[in-house]
Amino acid sequence: MTRIGFLGLGHMGLPMAKNLIAAGHDVVGFDLVPAAVEAAGAAGIPVASFGVDAVAGAEVVITMFPAGKHVIAAYQDGLLAAAEPGTLFIESSTIAVDEARTAHALAIEAGHRSVDAPVSGGVVGAENATLAFMVGGSDEDFAEALPLLEAMGKRIVHCGGPGLGQAAKICNNMILGVSQIVVAEAFVLAERLGLEHQAMYDVVSQASGQCWSLTTNCPVPGPVPTSPANRDYQPGFAGALMAKDLGLAVQAIEGTGTDARMGRLAQEIYSAFADGPGAARDFSGIITDIRDAS
């Protein structure tokens, strides 16, 4: 049994913490949002009044925050100081590569250990403990984190040194954002050509256009009963989060001088989507903007 401080009990963090408890670990949570605290209490997760209280005495600290600035501020404002020497920090937010490396350096300077371990798989993956973890850090720290990650996920990949877990996540989500747009565009085109949704799905899901954005996150109701399209695009993974992740991709594109025009265009499209109702809708709901714009 490992004593874990889990900070960030939102849509992803709460089920992840529950799965750690189900695996026999001792978890103390924390969140700034009263609704998240209430939901955690209802799920039987002890919640500390302050983040430093959740960290005190923990062997491992897991953070799941909205953005890199929150991670770095929390580390600098008391989390690292409150932790026992040698605590392993597992940073599972999706943040910029340079922010992940800054967080890692801060943890090391404070006498701790650190891995970045962003996730893919959305709320359903978090609930079912089938997340994918992309991990950056030393071999030794990865080995220690692995049993905990296996309690929350199905596929865990050690991507290399500090920050490279985030690098993998950013590249993955750039592919995801671009593919979700083109699947939505294809369905709108199919509609206007007179092709029924189910026929379109039956062909493409078994042909060269097959992809996750079609077979799991199908943007139209019907063909995939578990897709967000069948629950009025309730996230899932909200459009605002996809816009944020694609912003991180563009930041990396610019920082490396990469010619990645599709990634840039996807970021523009999702930023516009997130400025409207898409902020709180699943990112597959981009199909509504495509219909309205054409």
Rank of each mutant, 00 (worst) to 15 (best):
T288P: 13
A199F: 12
A40P: 00
I45P: 00
T258P: 10
K69F: 11
S227H: 10
A96M: 01
F237L: 15
V47E: 00
Y270M: 03
I286L: 14
L176I: 13
A74H: 05
D232L: 05
G165Q: 02
D141Y: 15
K169E: 04
A238I: 08
H197E: 12
A42W: 06
C218I: 07
D275K: 14
I90L: 08
N19L: 00
T87S: 07
T226L: 12
T94K: 00
A145R: 00
G121H: 01
P277F: 14
A39C: 07
F187G: 12
D31N: 13
V28N: 00
Y201L: 12
A74D: 05
D98M: 03
D289N: 12
I108E: 08
A126S: 06
H104K: 09
Q234R: 10
L88F: 02
G177Q: 06
A100S: 08
I181R: 10
I170V: 14
A54G: 06
A190E: 11
P85S: 04
D292H: 10
A82G: 02
A129Q: 04
K244I: 09
V37E: 01
R192M: 11
M174I: 09
N230R: 01
H158A: 09
G247P: 00
V27E: 01
P85R: 04
A279H: 09
G24A: 00
V52D: 04
A43H: 11
H158M: 13
Q267F: 07
D116W: 01
Q251I: 14
G209I: 08
G5D: 01
